[in-house]
Amino acid sequence: MASITDVVKEGLKYPFNDGKKVLTLGIIFLVSSLVSLAMEYLVFDNMRILANLAPVDSVQAALSALPPSSLALIVLSWIVTFVLMVFASGYIYDVIKYGIEGRSELPEFSDIKGLLLKGLRAFVVGLAYSILPMILFFLGLMLTVNESVGTSVNAIGGIILLLAIIFAIFVSLVNVMALCNMVDKDEFAAAFRFKEILGLIKNLGWGRFIGILLFTVIAVMIITVFCGFIFGAIAGIVSMIVGSAFVMALINMILNSLLINPFVSIAISRVYGSIYKEATKTELETI
């Protein structure tokens, strides 16, 4: 059985097996970030247009006051960003699969349709697992901050909010193994076989499972902060030379999208696959 440090170290080293594919994923992240930046600019510009108009009394009146071309571009940017993120999720899906199979190479980008379908599966699973925690969280938050309902209801809201946070942490842990189970079985329903999923975590051990994930998060945070400091220094120097703060933000976004985001996504996904492989290995050893 591999140790916690071995699993995490292998995951962190894995992206270096093929820098070109890491950079390819980074380009996808970069294009998505640039599209999102353009969308934010359009939204801000349209909000400025609405602010200069007389008060509008309905959503329909507000939309009719905006240029149709701007609304079309905003919707298009949402669609493009969503498609790119689904495609990236499909690639991460394959990274998990390669981790489960113990393959040293990185997946290919050739099967575009397959990656989109896999990414859509992962998106739906993540959404399904997040719905209930989100409902509980917002319910607790509303009851806590609403002064008109009284202190006793506020206290109940605080309890619900605390339980929602604990439940969200538990669900996020289960979601990791659920995603891996779906990837391994190549079956959407496998993500919701809760008895099977909880059994895999039990085989690995909750302490070891949480320990690997926690160690991975800490290691990734250290790397991200270090690289962020380096990239920030580079961006700061360039921005001082050209005399523009926007350039500094743009360079930071480009470097993070191209290098940090794909590295982190691939490394964490590799760890997920390794965790699942260890859980199934432990299960076989106990049979």
Rank of each mutant, 00 (worst) to 15 (best):
V86K: 09
V86L: 15
V86F: 09
A88I: 00
G90L: 03
G90T: 05
Y91M: 03
Y91V: 04
Y91D: 01
I92P: 00
Y93C: 05
Y93T: 01
D94L: 14
G102R: 05
G102N: 05
E105D: 14
E105M: 06
L106Q: 00
F109T: 02
I112A: 10
I112D: 03
K113S: 07
G114H: 05
K118N: 07
K118Y: 04
K118R: 13
G119H: 00
G119N: 03
A122K: 10
F123T: 06
V124H: 02
V125C: 02
L127Q: 10
L127T: 11
A128H: 05
A128W: 07
A128I: 12
M134F: 13
M134S: 09
M134R: 09
M134C: 03
L136K: 08
L139R: 10
G140M: 06
L141W: 15
V145Q: 08
N146Y: 11
E147C: 04
E147V: 13
S148M: 11
S148L: 11
G150A: 10
G150N: 14
T151P: 04
N154F: 11
N154Y: 12
N154P: 05
A155V: 13
I156L: 15
I160V: 15
I160A: 08
L161H: 05
L162N: 01
A168S: 13
A168I: 07
V171H: 07
S172E: 08
L173I: 06
L173T: 00
N175S: 10
N175E: 10
V176S: 04
M177K: 05
L179C: 02
C180M: 12
M182D: 02
D184I: 01
K185M: 07
D186H: 04
E187F: 11
F188T: 04
A190P: 01
A191R: 12
F192N: 08
R193K: 15
F194W: 07
F194G: 04
I197A: 01
L198Y: 04
G199D: 05
L200V: 00
L200I: 00
I201E: 08
I201M: 15
K202Y: 06
K202N: 11
N203G: 11
W206V: 04
W206H: 06
